[in-house]
């Protein structure tokens, strides 16, 4: 058995968001971005951009780091936040991304004028993929 030294001694959540469901049919992704992060990692791995085990190692490290930092009884574990961080780690480590690139581009997106959206209600500037830099 692999050890889990240092992991929190939390009470199993039986009512809240992480509650054990009794049957099939739970939503797979809590929010749309989680599905995009999932889809990116699987696509990249299937295309051979990185090996799944390389990603998994980063995911394990990110989860362990969260648990070490959060300490015992910490609520609010977000699996796909660790997943996203691991995905960036792999891409940075392999030179596909610069270390601060995603943060920088996030800032560009955050500065978009209010009212942009993906529903397209007649603003006339499309789907937002043309940010140019």
């Amino acid at each position: 058995m692999t050890g889990t030294c240092g992991t929190p001694t939390a009470v199993l959540d039986v009512e809240g968001a992480a509650a054990p469901p009794r049957a099939n049919g739970e939503l797979v992704f809590a929010e749309p971005w989680e599905s995009r992060a999932f889809g990116m990692a699987v696509s990249l791995s299937e295309q051979g951009v990185f090996a799944w085990d390389t990603f998994r190692d980063r995911l394990v490290a990110r989860i362990a780091a969260w648990e070490a930092e959060a300490g015992p009884d910490a609520p609010g574990f977000r699996y796909y936040t660790c997943w996203l961080a691991a995905l960036e780690d792999v891409l940075v480590a392999s030179g596909r991304l610069a270390a601060d690139e995603v943060a920088a581009h996030s800032a560009v997106l955050a500065a978009r004028p209010a009212g942009h959206d993906h529903g397209g209600h007649g603003h006339g500037h499309g789907h937002g993929h043309g940010h140019g830099h």
Binding site: R36, S106, A107, L109
Partner: peptide
């Protein structure tokens, strides 16, 4: 790097994609 900072994950995911 990574979402230990304050960028909302939805935004960060969109930027990465």
């Amino acid at each position: 790097s990574g979402p230990t900072d304050r960028i909302p994950p939805a935004l960060r995911t969109e930027a990465l994609e």
